[in-house]
Design a binder for these strands. Structure first.
Length: 212
DNA sequence: AAGAAGATCGGCT
DNA sequence: GCCGATCTTCTTA
């Protein structure tokens, strides 16, 4: 266990996800990130916040019109074109941020691709998350990080993390999965909030539990 | 040059 | 369920 100013931190002792785990297509990696823990150690307030990934979406490749990389590289999406293992953070609707992790073979990658982290189940720093989200102690844990904009707000993820490599990062990283899930626990559906390529079932969600 | 759309969220009806 | 907030990119609505 590692010490923080608020006591022992459980998540700091969990091994990180290896780059090899990201060296596949986004579609293959997206379900594999379910059960991993996204950990944030904020440079602003030093607080550790973390949540188990419960919902992901794959984006990218040559035929995904919903992908930010579909029409090529721009200033905004350039991090999406980085090799596997980098965070791509963008501003959504002018207000929120969304966080992706890039995937793909480091040598063969021809198109931008990555996994959007859409939801977490909080496991550490819950009071900090509530404060950042402007909620009081009565706010249900299961709704704290139940959307991509909420995830970044609760974990203090913003443009400053855009392009950050997760290897050796001290402010933001992903752990190895802490549980093994049976295949039936994962629900596969079309992606949310898009108008193009809606026919692709590229969204992966852990089945609802007793807590949500 | 101007307008629409977008990987969202929260408040209001 | 609908709408507004607010910023970047793409299209010409």
């Amino acid at each position: 266990m590692s010490e923080t100013k608020h006591g022992k931190s459980w998540v700091l002792s969990i091994p990180r996800l290896t780059l090899a785990a990201l060296e596949h297509s986004a579609l293959e990696v997206a379900p594999n990130l379910l059960g991993c823990i996204l950990v944030s150690c904020s440079a602003t307030d030093g607080q550790i916040t973390a949540g188990m990934i419960t919902e992901t979406e794959a984006y990218g490749g040559p035929n995904d019109e919903a992908s930010h990389g579909y029409r090529g590289k721009t200033v905004r999406n350039s991090s999406f074109f980085l090799p596997r293992g980098h965070f791509y953070v963008y501003r959504s609707y002018g207000i929120h941020h969304c966080v992706n992790i890039t995937t793909g073979d480091v040598l063969l990658k021809k198109h931008a691709e990555g996994v959007l982290i859409r939801a977490l189940f909080p496991v550490e720093g819950i009071d900090t998350m509530r404060r950042r989200r402007g909620k009081d102690h009565t706010f249900p844990i299961s709704k704290l990080t139940a959307g991509p904009g909420m995830v970044t707000q609760a974990l203090c993820i913003s443009i400053e993390h855009d392009g950050l490599p997760l290897k050796n990062a001290t402010s933001l990283w992903i752990t190895q999965p802490i549980r093994v899930f049976i295949k039936d626990a994962i629900t596969i559906t079309p992606r949310i909030g898009i108008t193009k390529s809606q026919e692709l079932n590229w969204r992966f969600r852990l089945q609802a539990t007793s807590t949500n």
